[in-house]
Amino acid sequence: MPEPKSAFDATYPCDFYEPAELFEPDQMYTIPEIARLLQELEPDAEVDPDTEAVLIDWAIPWVMTHAEDLVIAEPLEEDGPGYYGVAPHAVEGKAGGREAGEGEEESEDADPQDGA
């Protein structure tokens, strides 16, 4: 049931990390590890199952929202989890924001015959 904003003592900006800020460029992470990182915890931090479920509920939409700046790998074991990492273009564009990554994508589509 929705609650009026006046019911809360305070509200805060909904500000999340970009993948290049959250991940080490040479590492791949599972959803539970991403959930911990989003809460400024170590990827292997112990959390109780109920807390982990809530953290994962927040992490899944974050992964979907940032999909263009992520890479994914097959599970290491048949029944293991998938792994996510920051895409190279997102790391390279970290200093320049999204525009650097977008320009890189356009250059891949350029016609080599045009000399571009």
Rank of each mutant, 00 (worst) to 15 (best):
A10M: 06
G101D: 02
A20R: 03
F23T: 08
R36I: 03
A35Y: 01
A73Y: 13
A90F: 02
L38I: 02
P75M: 13
A67R: 06
E77A: 15
V63N: 06
V86E: 01
V71G: 07
E99W: 04
M64S: 00
Y17W: 03
A20D: 03
V63F: 03
G115V: 04
M28Y: 15
G85W: 04
P88A: 11
V47H: 07
D15A: 09
R98K: 10
E108W: 13
H66W: 08
I34M: 14
D111A: 12
G80F: 07
I56A: 04
K5T: 11
Q27G: 08
E68G: 03
V54H: 08
P32V: 07
M64A: 00
Y83V: 03
F8D: 07
H66A: 05
A35P: 02
L70C: 08
H89K: 15
D48Q: 13
T11N: 04
C14H: 05
E104S: 11
P112K: 03
Y83F: 11
E68F: 03
V71I: 10
A67D: 07
P61F: 00
P13M: 01
E42T: 12
M1L: 14
L70W: 01
P32T: 10
L22N: 05
S107H: 10
D79W: 13
P43C: 05
F8N: 05
A35E: 02
E92T: 14
D111I: 05
P43N: 03
G82D: 13
Q39P: 00
